[in-house]
Amino acid sequence: MIRVILKRIGLAFLTLFGVTVIVFALLQMMPGEPIDSIVPLDASDALRQAIIEKYGFDKPLYVQYFCWLGNALRGNFGNSVSDNRLVLTIVSEALHNTLILALGASIVAFLLSIVIGVYSAYRPKSILSWVGTIFGIGGISIPNYCLSLILIGIFSVTLHVLPSNGMYFSGDYSFSSLLRHLILPALAAGAMTLGIMTRMVRSSVAETRNRSFVTTLRAKGLSEPAIMRHVLRNSFPTLLTVAGLQFGYLMGGSTMVETIFSWPGIGLIIYQSIFTSDFPTTQAAILIVAVIFVSINLIIDLLRIVADPRLRK
């Protein structure tokens, strides 16, 4: 088991190495030269050359890569081009806000999908199963940016019950203020997760129920709730994987929702930094999201190894 775990951790580091290469490559491919944001346009060629040498832009690419990597590992991403604050500060604040949104979205989506999914796997002809089908197919088909606008249209514009942007009412930093701002974006961001998870839970539980060991348990006279416990225990690893992946997506994939609701999270930061050509912020944000994503996948895989003895070989 230790070997399997070490191997999986090694693989995660290999992936992270690949991630840094991709982010660095993206940075190189960005339109415009990075020195143009440092050197004044009317600077003399000699000054320009001096600055190029000072910042190491004349060095070979691989040297630049390792310098950049070294800085990134120490959390040094430089200052934001647009407001000169430390990129690390901006990104970690945004990360905190995105975490709130992702938790809100996943709590709703996970709970609903597990209840609906398990129930409809057991009662395929019930009304709730029908609701599950609609949530399932609707959730994976509706663009979250369209759902955001629909929710704003209904709850903010027409009914005037929930706010449509920001995280707090001005001057009111209470929990209830946060909660009221969280509801709409969390629903919009969580809809896709709800759809995917409902389908997943239902098919996984339904499939496990058809396995022969369930028939054996029933033949041996086990009570239905006890059988259900075995069924859930067997579908658990699959569900854990999907849930982990979905949480990862919510941590990094809610750009449109955050943009519409002006939720000051990592997605909004990425959106703004791209349109203001704030390269240091863009790359730091993308890199950190990728690191979080890889870590979540790693944790999930390790949990699976612990939960599923078959994976320990």
Binding site: T15, V21, G248, Y249, V289, F293, N297
Partner: peptide
Amino acid sequence: TLDVFYAFPSIL
């Protein structure tokens, strides 16, 4: 190699 692409949320 393809795993590296899985390290990013795809939309990002």
